[in-house]
Design a protein around this nucleic acid. Structure first.
Lengths: 239, 239
DNA sequence: CATTCCCAAACTGTATTCCAAATCGGCGGC
DNA sequence: GCCGCCGATTTGGAATACAGTTTGGGAATG
């Protein structure tokens, strides 16, 4: 218990961060991300109850920011709430999980095409840098960094699409997919980063058609490497 | 001012609904829908400031439910908030608006295909009933009912997909599109409802492939009838 | 003994009040 | 004329209070 987001229970903020250690100023967003991370990581099991009081204690905040976070998470689909019965972690069915992959396979190519048309020079530099890093890590065998690099690559690509809505939707899809699926990274690291490099090349040349094709192929191959975590779809009572 | 969601400012709920007129019990959701409707209807102009106090007065609730509503609307993309600068109505660019149509044209066929595979008998009955109503209204020239019927049809179809996430996403897309676009209904009413009937038929026969094709064609034709409301993209200061 | 009904505890939903922090607009100094 | 500073306004959050629901367990009953 007591993760302490920068302030201890029962003490005012100024009493805590007197050190000026830049404690998180805004709790609501922080709490939202924290709860989501705890859901994705499996700390909160699907179907488990999320009592406002419990969450408030856990993150060291009052009920107000917790409630705001829960509303956001509800509209993101990670949490389900019943009128007066409180919030529970969502329990996606196998069908919903499958649809997530399909939605991504439809939208990711669109995002890549738009990124090719609208990316800024700076975004392109970030993408190139990430590709170089990813390929380096592949050669070095530093596989532990790959998931994060992959996430950053796709997030940057999404943001380069120029549509905040599309970008946030793609990010949300990736988060939910990583919540419900495990990836067989077998030997796919190098191949995936070659595909990333090809997409980045098309984006650099502003070739939207090619970027779309490459992204579609990339997502299709990635999808094939996804396996449902068996926990999904099994109903469990209580936390 | 003072829309009164069932309670007057400064009075407790019990003082007001002594008549038992089933006043809305939960304000947060109600306020969220109310603000969203006021945004979509244009009452709150893009870029306009949404002061918590103002919203609280307007809907006759305290700041707490208003804040929760704003969080939801923010994650839906209707509202933009800066750390301590408050909330403003989002100002979508022409690019974002265009991407909305494309996202729908990708996802609506998926929804239709899934609906064909997973619809319940009851959902099919609702769809058939709506189609019959829509075609009746077309013949009678009752065009004023058509937008609502169209909305219900697509909403029912989305829910029949069996993926709550996909359904809510499609509904959200339609709401945003109706916010930013005007539809040239010229003579499209009957044609659209013929297409609705064909989709319903495919859904009834559980023909996912055909439902997908028909939905794609339907959305493509509908897209062609959409015209950006000129207000979009023009920056305005204040409400 | 099983079933049903009812009640009390727990929790949500909201209001209210208070306070700290940050933004924004205008004012004065340079 | 430009820059920086100050104060009013507003957001973000805490703490408290209370009504309305849901829920689970226990008592009464067949």
């Amino acid at each position: 218990m007591e993760y302490s987001l920068g302030m201890a229970t029962g003490k005012t903020r100024s009493e805590v961060d007197g050190t000026g250690e830049a404690a998180r100023r805004i709790s609501a967003r922080t709490v939202c991300s924290a709860i989501r991370d705890d859901i994705v990581s499996g700390f909160f099991a699907p179907g488990g109850r999320l009592t406002e009081e419990l969450l408030a204690k856990r993150y060291g905040v009052s009920r107000v920011p917790v409630r705001e976070a829960l509303r956001t998470l509800e509209s993101e689909g990670f949490v389900r709430t019943r009128r007066h019965a409180g919030a529970t972690v969502a329990e996606p069915t196998e069908q919903e999980a499958g649809d997530l992959l399909e939605m991504r396979s439809l939208l990711e190519p669109l995002g890549a095409a738009r990124a090719a048309q609208r990316r800024t020079q700076q975004q392109l530099r970030v993408l190139s840098g990430l590709v170089r890093l990813g390929q380096e890590r592949c050669r070095e065998g530093q596989l532990s960094d790959l998931p994060a690099l992959d996430g950053w690559f796709h997030e940057t690509l999404a943001q380069a699409s120029g549509s905040p809505g599309l970008a946030s939707l793609l990010t949300q899809l990736r988060r939910k997919i990583s919540w419900m699926y495990a990836v067989e990274q077998a030997g796919r690291g190098p191949g995936a980063w070659e595909e990333h490099a090809a997409i980045t090349d098309a984006v650099a040349r502003r070739d939207a058609v090619r970027a779309r094709e490459l992204a579609a192929a990339h997502v299709a191959r990635a999808t094939a490497a996804h396996r449902l975590k068996h926990a999904v779809n099994t109903r469990r009572d209580r936390i």
